[in-house]
């Protein structure tokens, strides 16, 4: 099963490699990982998307918690949560395709943030599935570049991860 785990850790050199190293050393899946400092610059917030059996997910949670740099952790998929990912996709936009691509971006509520003679760059924020489905709609032939941040997650309502 797919799980989205959110954690707060010390914003220190090496903290990220402790997490990344843990996943590779123990053979856990890692679909995406995104990290940046929070409003408190001494803390970083990380979102990890992973998958595995219940037993594996339990171990992943425990092993992450065991890292001395990890201050707090929540498995967002265990409750109501929001998940967003940002994608920038550069596409070949020529002739009739230009109109078609614009319509497509609109339907997905994406924005064209750069137009050139032969290309568009579309920005889209949404769930990973929404991003996937825009890419599918556009089709491999037209896509020149894709940049995705990996998911960021947050609990709904009173589900708060804070120190």
């Amino acid at each position: 099963m797919r799980h989205i785990i959110s954690l707060l850790m010390e914003n220190e050199a090496g903290a990220l490699s402790r997490v990344a190293g843990l996943f590779s050393a123990r053979g856990y899946n890692i679909e995406s990982l995104s990290v940046a400092p929070t409003e408190d610059p001494t803390l970083s917030r990380m979102t990890i998307v992973t998958s595995g059996s219940d037993a594996v997910i339990e171990q992943i949670n425990k092993q992450l918690n065991k890292l001395v740099d990890v201050a707090a952790l929540i498995d967002l998929s265990e409750g109501e949560h929001l998940e967003r990912e940002l994608m920038l996709v550069k596409v070949r936009a020529e002739g009739d395709a230009r109109e078609e691509l614009k319509r497509m971006a609109d339907t997905f509520r994406g924005r064209i943030i750069d137009t050139a003679d032969h290309t568009y760059t579309i920005e889209l924020t949404g769930s990973c599935a929404e991003l996937d489905s825009l890419l599918e709609k556009i089709g491999r032939e037209l896509i020149l570049e894709t940049v995705r941040t990996g998911a960021s997650g947050i609990g709904r309502g009173d589900r708060i991860l804070k120190l």
């Binding site: 090496g14 490699s17 190293g21 050393a25 740099d69």
Partner: peptide, 13 residues
């Protein structure tokens, strides 16, 4: 710090 990371409880530079 990198070499010993997987076999220490924690490490510091």
């Amino acid at each position: 710090v990198g070499i010993t990371r997987p076999c220490v409880k924690h490490n510091f530079l």
